[in-house]
């Protein structure tokens, strides 16, 4: 198929960017969206132009690197997929596709479609971990009884790949789905209890510091999340935060 692409081009973090139109031809419907971008970039390199910078790594939907806001949605129109798993069969011959970087004050654009999601790392560093003694006497995690229900829910929360689609989709650029998932994956397990109070307080404080907006429960994040992270994780984080503040 033949497509018109409207792509955000921005030289570096300081420059003002703009939308630029490109044409690509003979795109196979079996290609992934990133492969289509590869075709465009090859074309640009052959004509001596600067290729479009975009993030990617695993190309199998597990690393969370690929981003892009495609036709007004994070990771494009398909559900439960990242951009690397988005197939060109979701589009029609002759379509015009708008491609923008994830937008949020806390995710500054570095170049073209590449944004800095370091804010997520800093939130993780603020409390998204447990402290374990690794001196050689480390207790086997399987020795600790955990209910199937809690284990399943913790695993669901832990499938968050930190891609940032939730922030990009949210009208408020809120990071609460991500932080809710990261708080929940520990809050549900016995190993997470010891540091629970500090964890939620510190992670929320860091989230606020990074300049993310505040959740108004539109639910856009849950719909656009490639891993189906549930809004329930935000409700759980709110409960954890309230009880942590009551405990002092």
């Amino acid at each position: 198929m033949n497509l018109t692409l409207k792509i955000w081009r921005q030289k570096d973090a300081q420059s003002k960017g703009k939308m630029v139109d490109y044409k690509v031809t003979e795109i196979s419907e079996h290609m992934s969206f990133l492969e289509m971008m590869d075709v465009l970039n090859e074309q640009l390199i052959n004509t001596g132009e600067e290729p479009v910078a975009f993030d990617h790594d695993c190309r199998e939907g597990i690393c969370g690197m690929c981003s892009m806001y495609i036709n007004g949605e994070a990771h494009g129109p398909d559900r439960g997929v990242t951009t690397c798993q988005l197939h060109m069969r979701m589009f029609k011959d002759g379509d015009t596709i708008t491609i923008e970087p994830f937008r949020a004050k806390a995710f500054p654009v570095l170049k073209d479609l590449v944004v800095d999601r370091g804010a997520f790392d800093r939130i993780q560093h603020a409390g998204g971990y447990i402290s374990v003694n690794t001196s050689g006497n480390t207790q086997d995690a399987n020795a600790i009884p955990i209910s199937k229900h809690a284990a399943d829910e913790a695993m669901d929360a832990a499938t968050c790949i930190g891609c940032g689609a939730c922030v990009a989709s949210c009208k408020n650029s809120s990071a609460m789905l991500f932080v809710g998932a990261k708080v929940s994956q520990y809050a549900l397990l016995p190993q997470g209890q010891v540091e629970a109070t500090d964890r939620v307080k510190n992670m929320v404080a860091q989230m606020d510091l990074e300049g993310f907006g505040n959740c108004t429960n539109t639910g856009a994040c849950e719909v656009e999340c490639p891993k189906g992270i549930s809004l329930e994780n935000i409700a759980r984080m709110n409960r954890e935060f309230l009880s942590a503040n009551i405990k002092g």
Binding site: E100, R103, K105, G211, F212, T218
Partner: peptide, 30 residues
Amino acid sequence: ILEFKNRQARVVKYAKNNGAANSSWMSRNM
């Protein structure tokens, strides 16, 4: 205040945003 702060959390707006794909009109226009 919430609305004002939330608008500040996205400086550059999207050229194309399909809000209807993932959320209700009511939730986006409180």
